[in-house]
Structure formats: structure tokens, C-alpha cells
């Protein structure tokens, strides 16, 4: 929630103000596209702890947060990141070693849960998942749920269709809403008040924003309000939902940002290699995250040639013929 005031802020200041230890956080994007990576790395640099994260499929960002030890609980549908990591590597290790508590849902479940949160509903209905272990096996116990007022008392519930067999459904699944303390998304264009224009797929970002108590927008460009208001039908998020706006060019790097730059296959492959070994991964964090001091510092390490190579082609929105092996 935000007002009509200007909300431009520095990234470190926005993270310090809104991302608290133990808070409930969701980030935007999907696997290797439009993850708010500048914000993710800043959360790591500020050594935030005990985050409860909500994700449908935020591969690049969530895996770094887990790897850096920021996450203690995770409601998730998919921990994978394309060819570089069919299963996210730090995610896998953390689950196998019992370092994080996890609750599995499907992508539709998680999207609907954000949607319910955005609508102010306690729960939402779907016909997905009946008969599966997503329904039968719970990651968070009833006891844990009963003790924590910030999580619902049940993972989900199946009920008979109260409208008898209307629409041919005998039963439906009820999923509890999510209202994160903070949602962070990265968009192509925003104005200084927080109105956003996302280009390409929106994934679930708008609902994640509308469901959250506080919202940080990072963006490639700050655009004049008048400019965005010439075509308001292209703007998915009005400023009323937004708490802070941060201008961060290449703020989704190393994930992609449609019409601006591609994902960096070389970087993602490199992280996957480091992520397989605790020592190598810690060295990686020391060098590229803590050592970079800021996102600009990190981009400087990558160098302008490397970033120029990822620049999106005007027609297609991605880097044509990029070496993606």
C-alpha cells in the first residue's frame, strides 16, 4: 500500500526499511526471467535471516536467497531454473539437509493463493491436485501451524461441491490466501509514484504486488507519469499498491528482462557449478555478492562487453543467436 507521494529510494534503504528478519516475502518473475536480482543480492548483503518465502517458480532469485542462508521456510511450486539447474542446487541441498522447512503446492495453487490475497479472500477454489500427495502430505505440521498466527491452520482442504454437481464437479480444493509482508518485483518501466508497466509475460507479479502489505518496485527505467498515462491500459500496477520505487538498470540480471536484455547463460552455468560445493558457493558469495558492495559494483565486475552481448534485439525482445550452451 502506498500514497500518491513520490517513492524513489535507494535500493539498500528500501531493503533496510521493508525487509525485516523473519518477514514473509515474495519476489516476482519466473525461473530465469525478470527476477528482482538486484534486490535479492541486497537482501543477501544485508544478511537478512529467517525469511518465510512464497514462490511459484522463482528459480534464480529464490536459490540465491536459500544458498545465502536467508530463508527458513518456503511455500513453493517449483525449484528449478532451466537448463543450468533442472533442480535448483542450493534449494535441493537445503531441503535434503533439513535446513529449510518446505510446503509444496503447484504453480496454479500458488498463483491462486496470491490472487486470493489480492482479492482479500480467506481462501480460493480450484479443481487441481485431488488424489495427490500435494494434498495428502504436509510440510508444516498442524502443531507448527496452530502456534504461528502468520500461517493458516491447514495446508489446504477438500470439500464437496456446495452447489451439488454444478459444472460437473463433485469436489473442490480450497487453498488459503497469501498476504506477504513484502513483495519485490522488477519491471521494465515505472514512474516515481510506483505505477508500473510490465512488458511481455506478467507471470503472477500484479497479484503478488496487490496481496502484499509493502511493495518494492525495481525498474529498468523511471518514466514520466504523463508518458505512462498516455496508455493506461498498458499499465498493470497503479501506484496505490507501491511503497518504494528503485531505479536499477540491469536489476533482473543475471535473469532476463524482455525487450531489455537476455539471461546470462554463462553466469547461470557458473553459479550452478559453484552451488554444488559449499566452499565454492561461499567463495562465490564473498566475491560476487558481498564483495560487489552494490548492484552497480556487481555489473562493473561483469563488464560492459558481457552485458552488451545480452542486449535484447529490438524486434524479438531477446538476444538473437546468443550462445546459450
Amino acid at each position: 500500500m502506498g500514497t500518491g507521494a513520490e517513492k524513489l529510494m535507494a535500493l539498500d534503504e528500501a531493503i533496510k526499511k521493508y525487509v525485516k528478519d523473519g518477514c514473509h516475502l515474495s519476489i516476482g518473475g519466473f525461473t530465469l526471467n525478470r527476477n528482482p536480482m538486484a534486490a535479492v543480492y541486497e537482501i543477501i548483503r544485508q544478511r537478512k535471516k529467517r525469511l518465510h518465502c512464497y514462490a511459484h517458480s522463482n528459480g534464480t532469485g529464490i536459490d540465491e536467497l536459500i544458498g545465502a542462508g536467508c530463508v527458513s521456510r518456503l511455500d513453493i511450486a517449483y525449484g528449478g531454473n532451466g537448463k543450468a539447474a533442472p533442480t535448483c542446487i542450493r534449494f535441493r541441498a537445503a531441503v535434503q539437509q533439513g535446513k529449510i522447512q518446505i510446503e509444496d503446492y503447484s504453480n496454479y495453487h500458488m498463483s491462486l493463493r496470491f490472487h486470493a490475497g489480492a482479492m482479500g479472500l480467506p481462501f480460493i477454489v480450484t479443481r487441481s491436485g485431488m488424489g495427490t500427495d500435494i494434498v495428502n502430505r504436509w510440510g508444516y505440521s498442524r502443531e507448527m501451524r496452530s502456534k504461528d498466527p502468520k500461517i493458516p491452520c491447514k495446508k489446504l482442504e477438500i470439500i464437496d461441491n456446495p452447489f451439488e454437481d454444478w459444472c460437473g464437479a463433485s469436489k473442490v480444493v480450497l487453498l488459503p490466501a497469501i498476504n506477504p509482508d513484502v513483495t519485490i518485483i522488477h519491471v521494465q518501466k515505472a514512474d516515481k509514484f510506483g505505477t508500473c508497466r510490465i512488458e511481455g509475460l506478467t507471470f503472477c507479479d500484479a497479484d503478488q504486488v496487490k496481496a502484499a502489505k509493502n511493495v518494492i518496485i525495481t525498474c529498468e527505467e523511471i518514466v514520466d507519469t504523463e508518458e505512462l498515462r498516455k496508455k493506461p491500459e498498458y499499465n498493470q500496477i497503479p501506484f496505490i499498491h507501491v511503497s518504494a520505487v528503485v531505479h536499477v538498470p540491469f536489476g533482473a540480471y543475471p535473469s532476463a528482462c524482455y525487450n531489455y536484455y537476455d539471461y546470462d547463460p554463462q553466469y547461470l552455468n557458473q553459479v550452478s557449478k559453484f552451488a554444488k560445493d559449499d566452499t565454492l558457493y561461499n567463495d562465490y558469495l564473498d566475491r560476487f555478492v558481498y564483495g560487489a558492495k552494490s548492484h552497480q559494483g556487481f555489473l562493473d565486475m561483469m563488464g560492459t562487453d558481457r552485458l552488451a552481448n545480452l542486449k535484447a534485439d529490438k524486434k524479438t525482445g531477446y538476444a538473437v543467436d546468443l550462445d546459450r550452451r
Binding site: 519466473f30 525461473t31 496454479y108 498463483s111 491462486l112 509475460l201 524479438t316 525482445g317
Partner: peptide, 27 residues
């Protein structure tokens, strides 16, 4: 799909699509 997408979120799935919605639309 002029080039193979490496993930379902790859910008290559966005180019020239009939519509670019979100997860709720797809499911």
C-alpha cells in the same frame, strides 16, 4: 519460437505470441 526457449519463462516464448498473459490465464 524462432529460437528454442530454455525455460517456459524465456523471452523467446513471448515473441510473436497471440497474447502474453500470466499463470492464472494459462491454468
Amino acid at each position: 519460437l524462432e529460437e528454442i526457449p530454455m525455460a517456459v519463462s524465456d523471452s523467446r516464448v513471448m515473441y510473436g505470441a497471440a497474447s502474453n498473459g500470466g499463470l492464472l490465464d494459462a491454468f
